[in-house]
């Protein structure tokens, strides 16, 4: 039987679809029975999706201007 602690180390392998069949089965069985681990897995997924939803940061004006100058040179 997979323990909660062991499960927390397998979450990425699980989300990546890299768990071998038997381990994936134990993983499913465990989260089926354990509310705390369900919460944990949900939080991991939410952390991943939230990271993916971060807006791109601002570029300093001088960097942007420099890049635009480069682009204009390249264009000509």
């Amino acid at each position: 039987m997979l323990t909660c602690q062991q499960l927390t180390e397998l979450v990425t392998d699980y989300l990546e679809g890299q768990l071998p069949f038997r381990k994936r089965l134990s993983f499913h069985l465990h989260i089926g029975m354990c509310r705390d681990c369900r919460t944990y897995v949900r939080q991991m997924k939410l952390a991943v999706r939230t990271t993916g939803a971060l807006p791109p940061g601002d570029i300093p004006d001088e960097v942007r201007d420099q890049l635009l100058r480069r682009f204009r040179d390249w264009k000509d």
Binding site: C4, R49, T50
Partner: peptide, 28 residues
């Protein structure tokens, strides 16, 4: 996860608490 949050059996001793916000949009 900090090992101190598990019991010697490997079960959660201090389990994660559910968050109020449940979508990236609401979080951000």
């Amino acid at each position: 996860v900090d090992p101190a949050r598990f019991l010697p059996s490997g079960k959660w001793g201090a389990p994660p608490r559910a968050w109020n916000e449940d979508s990236p949009e609401r979080l951000l």
